[in-house]
Design a protein around this nucleic acid. Structure first.
Lengths: 205, 205
DNA sequence: ACCTGAACACCGTTCAAGT
DNA sequence: ACCTGAACACCGTTCAAGT
């Protein structure tokens, strides 16, 4: 028995419960409401939960530490969404399109969280944790591509490099969608064509 | 004479000069030093420049307004860099690689600014200004692709859609580089292969 | 171990008043 | 028109003290 996934009971009295996850949950809710991490105050969080304003300091050394933890939550949830959406039985193009839609949908529904997730952090330990979280996220994509490659449906080459092509494009599209460059529908609608172009290239065949 | 581009003298006494651009310049410097917009204080900016802490309020209604203006500066500068880097005489693949390198280089050198540029803003007027700025940025890419298309070197289809393929991939790669998923060298090194895959596709020919 | 209360050194924003 | 000074209502963070 290596390590069990952390349990997250849906309801819980925080009067004496575990403040850490209460803070994370409240922070996510507030972030979604206010729309920006700048207008997120530890003191307000503490007030909402009903603890003293100094209490958060026991669980997060910093406001940034809370934000980092929240970003990690986001990565975990995104990985779950992608893993759930992946269907190895599908033909390559459909499989990629499905994954792309799942990623884009998550990104649009969690725009505020995404902003945290994609923020630069220099603190080495947080960066490392986020690194493995990203790898897990990209994992589903990489498996789809490696499988297709073994079937000869994809060009030879390092699967990691090939995954990068699709990964960067999806990431960029999500970013454009979030920034408001596209509507949700336009972004979602662009997915099939994007996947097609990635597979068949911009040069005439 | 429609509208002249704003003049920006390099040196200037701010005691009585134009505070607005002094604030923007100081903000960019501080942003670069501190690394994050959260640790950027209007009061500190005012102190550095030598005006009262209420003075910035005359020029930016909000801290967010300053940040928005700074993002716009970033877009303008990025568009300049891309337009300067574009060489219409180059063969398609080289031309795209050059543009990609220029974009990536700018992104890495101006990571803090990029974070501002790619932040979601709901304020309608700022969003609109940023929209046109993005279009200008993507313009160089779009011209390269449209030209190649007319030469028959690129697949038929809406040039805007085709540009999106390259644009999203570059944007995503820059984002990965900034987040620290790649070193600068790794990201730059990945460019030629990425462009190649975009042109020739992931499916075997 | 976990939380509180008070304290410190800051903030952003507003607004009358000055030049 | 542009800036100042004072004031208001907040912050994040620390630290002794409580339970």
């Amino acid at each position: 028995m290596a390590s069990m996934p952390a349990e997250k009971p849906e309801t819980r009295p925080y009067h004496h419960g575990d403040l850490r996850s209460a803070l994370l949950a409240a922070a996510e809710r507030t972030l979604r409401d206010k729309g920006t991490a700048a207008s997120l105050s530890l003191r307000e969080l503490a007030r909402d939960i009903g603890v003293s304003h100094a209490a958060p300091g026991r669980h997060f050394k910093d406001k940034q530490a809370l934000l980092n933890a929240l970003a990690l939550v986001g990565y975990d949830r995104m990985a779950e969404v992608l893993e759930a959406a992946d269907d190895p039985g599908l033909p390559l193009q459909d499989r990629l399109t499905t994954l792309a839609r799942a990623y884009l949908g998550f990104a649009i529904d969690n725009a505020e969280l995404l902003e945290l997730m994609y923020a630069r952090k220099h603190e080495p330990d947080a960066a490392e944790q986020i690194g493995v979280a990203i790898d897990r996220t990209v994992g589903a994509l990489e498996r789809a591509i490696a499988a297709a490659q073994q079937r000869g449906e994809i060009v030879d080459g390092d699967p990691e490099h090939l995954t990068l092509v699709v990964g960067t494009a999806l990431h960029g599209l999500a970013s454009f969608a979030i920034t408001g460059k596209f509507t949700t529908e336009a972004a979602m609608g662009a997915v099939p064509e994007l996947v097609h172009h990635l597979l068949y290239g911009l040069k005439p065949r």
